[in-house]
Design a protein around this nucleic acid. Structure first.
Lengths: 136, 136
DNA sequence: GAGCATGTGAGAACTGTTGTCGACTGCGGG
DNA sequence: CCCGCAGTCGACAACAGTTCTCACATGCTC
């Protein structure tokens, strides 16, 4: 049975007040700072549960850290600035259809996909942010 | 000054023989197994240098591990069976153009993207493989 | 070949994450 | 309302991947 605990509720609530992506550690620190007594393990368990429930959306930073945010109902992808980390949601039926079609052509079923776009946002580009090229 | 050492050359050479993505640790193990004496730190340094030189391409797995491969002339994506792990390379100008366009519309420059498609391949589907959904 | 900046490598340190385990507590039943 | 107990908590240890350290080795320039 899945219980409705103070901690779980609290973690969930944090993401109501927060925009964008935040790491488990950050959430933990934020809660502790706010006087909320909660363990780090619990935060990790909570965010994982929330991701499974589809409440949160998770991606991994370039540094390998997992970051989370409230998931909007729509299926979408992320456009991430590699200099300042700013994230924008983008969506496009084009790519959805393409992915499904390609998978189907190869005989794959039950298809999902993950797509992230990285670049340097206008502000950072103006600021002359360095950019590590990443062809691929 | 950047020196041309035996180790650096050797790491680079490994990726000539290897297809697809491989972790630094795997490369290290492989080299040791082949009787090549090299330290793990050195492998890390080497792959990082190679990435900076544009010789290698790096992405991060879901588990947070960094994996590398020779940057192929062709840009393509992966279609991965979530049951047996079989991977097929797919490519499509559609999605490339879409990603670039979307990024440009948001004022992003110097754009790259990462896309993986997950599904159950025909063989595994016939075998009745289970599947874990991952919205996002 | 000499000098020396740069690279190497074993191991320690660090970071983010997951596991452990005794104590705790929501929740359904009585 | 209280009981019982399975699900949960949380401090801490354990882990994995990566980076740092530093004494030693070695390519490169002269």
């Amino acid at each position: 049975m899945i219980r409705n605990t103070r901690q779980r509720t609290a973690v969930n609530a944090v993401f109501d007040e927060l925009e964008g992506f935040h790491s488990a550690q950050e959430v933990h620190a934020r809660m502790r700072a706010a006087g909320d007594s909660i363990g780090l393990s619990t935060v990790y368990r909570a965010v994982q549960a929330l991701v499974e429930d589809g409440e949160l959306d998770s991606i991994r930073t370039d540094a390998g850290e997992a970051i989370y945010r409230r998931c909007s109902a729509r299926h979408h992808h992320h456009l991430v600035c590699r200099a300042c980390g700013r994230t924008e949601e983008v969506e496009g039926p084009t790519v959805e259809r393409w992915a499904d079609r390609v998978a189907a052509e190869h005989g794959f079923v039950d298809v999902t996909h993950s797509l992230e776009i990285f670049g340097t946002c206008a502000a950072c580009h103006r600021a002359g942010a360095p950019s590590a090229d990443r062809p691929g």
